[in-house]
Amino acid sequence: MLEIQNITKVFEKGTVNEHVAIKDMSLSLKKGEFVTVVGSNGAGKSTLFNAICGSFMVDGGKILLDNEDITYKSEHKRAREIGRVFQDPMKGTAPHMTIEENLALAYTRSQRHANPFSSAITKKKTAFFRENLARYHMGIEDRMKTKIGLLSGGQRQVVTLLMCTLSVPKLLLLDEHTAALDPATAEKVMEITKTIVAENNITTMMITHNLKQSLSTGSRTIMLDSGEIILDVSGKERENMSMEDLIQMYSMKKQKEFDNDRILLSSEE
């Protein structure tokens, strides 16, 4: 479904601040695969998502979605097939507009050729949105005319999730979408996420800092470090893996870097 071939992204190229965010990375996702992405700050997780979404163009390599080359497609055109939920609940919704207006806007993705001067909100659409919201028992379906800014973070994330999936995307990117919520709400939002993904068989990538969650959710786990994939496990190997193994792998990698630094520093003396 998603095919990433040798992509590279360098920020501030040619300056002293030059920073290689993604280094010759390749990754292939099968349809319906649910991949969790882990890695420390600055490992390139969000940069990878930005590259896939088209927030910027990569310096080299190719990105294919469902066999279509999207490397040079603009961000909003890619958004037809790619849904994305951010960590910040404020980011995915328009706070001064009502729930139904937000949903109607997001639903554009499925109605590309609709008349731009048609009514934005129809009874039929509202009923459809209500029905979908009601399934998750968050008490949002009776507040269709409420401004989204008045909802709690958890409720906003559920609405955002629905906005991204009501017209089923080919790829869903979740950027730590439960990290800003309290534990109970985070769990609930996670449950809803799993339900939606499973029901529609959506190919999904999820960034998380919760290592336990990274192994218990989905079917595959990748670990990034300094713009490279340093671990890619699935199936039996993943099942037998524990959180400690992950941490160990990670610190092993870090230790190596540390040693390198020490050699470098000591040689200067």
């Binding site: 994305r84 937000n102 993705r109």
Partner: peptide, 17 residues
């Protein structure tokens, strides 16, 4: 609706294709 949302949260508008 799209014009209104642009003033409210342009990122979200872009994400809605």
């Amino acid at each position: 609706l799209c014009v209104r949302a642009t003033g409210d949260n342009p990122d979200m508008v872009s994400a809605s294709s």
